[in-house]
Simulated assay, not measured.
Amino acid sequence: MVDETNEVLGHAPLFEALDEEGGAALRASITEVRLGRGQTLFSEGDEGDRLYVVISGKVKLTRAAVDGRENLVSVLGPSEMFGELSLFDPGPRTASAVAVTDTILAGLGHEDLRPFVYGQPEVAIVLLKALARRLRKTNDVMADLVFTDVPGRVAKALLDLADKFGKEGEDGLHVHHDLTQEELAQLVGASRETVNKALAEFALRGWLRIEAKAVVLMDVERLRRRAR
């Protein structure tokens, strides 16, 4: 398990920015966190003092509306990082983190991270790049909600999930996203019925095949064109 953890961490941007000695020092301060499917790591509004890297499994970040509706912000997999915002801007968590599957995380306390941030500019740059990517993603989502129809957003969401979790097979690109129909709808920002209608249309056209908490993308290029 140690070798697997070190391999996954080695692909995380934070650890890629460190030399071997620095990476070993930071790994020594890691706390392993194990979550069962559906278990909450932290909730929106909680105080944040740790950054996390996904070792195995999937984690979803969600935000709740005033009326109780939930928006699925993103789904994260191995080597992806979250929780870094409060390192630069201490305050309440801006989203809830919930395990989509059984999950193992590497937790890094901000007090352990700060010496690396202050002493090695490349580490700070990596973390700031992560925040910039999140801001850019937020801007893209907002633009899609205004300018892109639901089928286009569904196509784009499937392609994003494929980039993270897709595995090539003889019959297409297998994407085991592990999301329920409701969660997929929350990710797209539409009703479950509308999203299911878009998926059924794509399946009818032969672009994909729907499976339990998964899809097989058989015509990625058509989906890319539909996502534009």
Rank of each mutant, 00 (worst) to 15 (best):
R27G: 12
T101D: 06
G91Y: 08
S86Y: 09
T180K: 09
L179I: 05
G57L: 00
D67C: 06
A106K: 15
R93Y: 14
A17T: 00
D3N: 08
T40R: 12
V66C: 12
G172P: 09
P78G: 03
K164W: 11
R153S: 02
R205K: 10
L9Y: 05
E111D: 13
W207Y: 06
G91I: 02
R224H: 04
V146E: 07
G22L: 02
A143K: 08
D160P: 11
G166R: 13
R34L: 07
T103F: 09
V216G: 07
A124D: 05
L204C: 10
R34V: 14
D67P: 08
R69L: 07
N6T: 00
G107M: 08
K60G: 02
G172W: 08
A203E: 15
E168N: 10
E70M: 11
F165N: 00
E183W: 14
D171M: 12
A28D: 13
K129F: 13
L135F: 11
G172L: 12
H110C: 02
E70Y: 15
G152Q: 03
G206H: 03
E21W: 06
F147A: 06
V73R: 09
A214D: 02
R228Q: 07
P78R: 15
P90I: 00
A143Y: 12
R226I: 06
A203F: 10
F147K: 11
I210T: 06
D140A: 13
T31H: 15
E80D: 03
D171C: 14
Y52Q: 03
P151G: 00
G38S: 09
G57I: 01
V216M: 14
G36F: 09
L187G: 08
T31N: 06
G169T: 00
K213L: 09
R205T: 00
A200F: 06
M218N: 04
Q181Y: 14
L127Q: 01
T180R: 12
E21N: 07
T40K: 13
R136N: 13
L105I: 09
L158K: 13
L26M: 11
D149C: 02
D49P: 04
R224I: 02
E182H: 12
Q186C: 12
L113F: 03
H110S: 01
L61V: 07
E170G: 05
E211F: 11
V123Q: 01
